[in-house]
Amino acid sequence: MINPQLKKIILGLTLPIIICLIWQYLGELPQLAGLLPTPSKVLLGWSDWIFAKPGMGLNPYLGTWGANVSYSASRVFQGFLLACVIGIPLGLMIGWSRLVSNIVDPLIQSLRPIPITAWLPFSIAIFGIRDFGSIFLIFLGGLYPIVVNTTQGARDIEKNLVRAAMMMGASQLQLLRRVVLPASTPSIFTGLRIGLGVSWTAVIVSEMVAVKSGLGYVLWDAYYVGRMDIVLADMASIGAMGFISDQIIVLIQNKFLSWRILQSH
């Protein structure tokens, strides 16, 4: 008997391994030479990019992986944190107060359809080729999903929970903090997870154009100098970072929503 957990992992790995083997085989055919680096070449390039001593020769992709990952991650962290700090209270207010909703919601709804990529020239014009240009885009990309989902969560609150709190003498502020906020946490976390995904999109796009470091910058730069192995390694790195940061949110979510998890059993 094979462990069911192990079986699941093996099943999940089967398809990627088959694809890599076919890719490796096709990549080594003389007719296709040079079109795409093979998986083994990508792994080799990636490992040099991570582990090799920097500054050896003219290869700018030696040992700079860690620095670039941390540039991108720290931008995402700052922009996303800003989006949380502004987006969650804003969403709660819009969802809770009709007045705030009438004042703020039209603006948000009319700005929301503008894709964050369309903000690039604006952002560069205002903030220049500097970190904050990138952080602004990440913030904006994360903000909309967080606000919209938080608003929905606050609007969908069970009427009797609010009435119960009012009956016990809760003030408006206490209602927001002690009832509306916790009742909205499931939708807030939905917004956070979507927002984080958009934030990673935003960091890559902005680094391609607005700053000169990070995974997005390397991605475009490597493409220009024809280092497709680095391009692919970079893409995989972005995916891994997105996955890890999402898992962190899930971890926090499970801590906050244990009552919710029990509820669905």
Binding site: A164, A165, P182
Partner: peptide
């Protein structure tokens, strides 16, 4: 609404994220 008129709701309307104890002391706390 106010604490002088306590309401017992049809579906209890307890705060699902609070324990029994925290639900019971919600009133005095606020």
């Amino acid at each position: 609404p106010g604490p002088d008129r306590g309401v017992v709701f049809q579906e209890a309307a307890l705060f699902p994220w609070l324990t029994v104890w925290e639900n019971v002391i919600f009133g005095p706390k606020v």
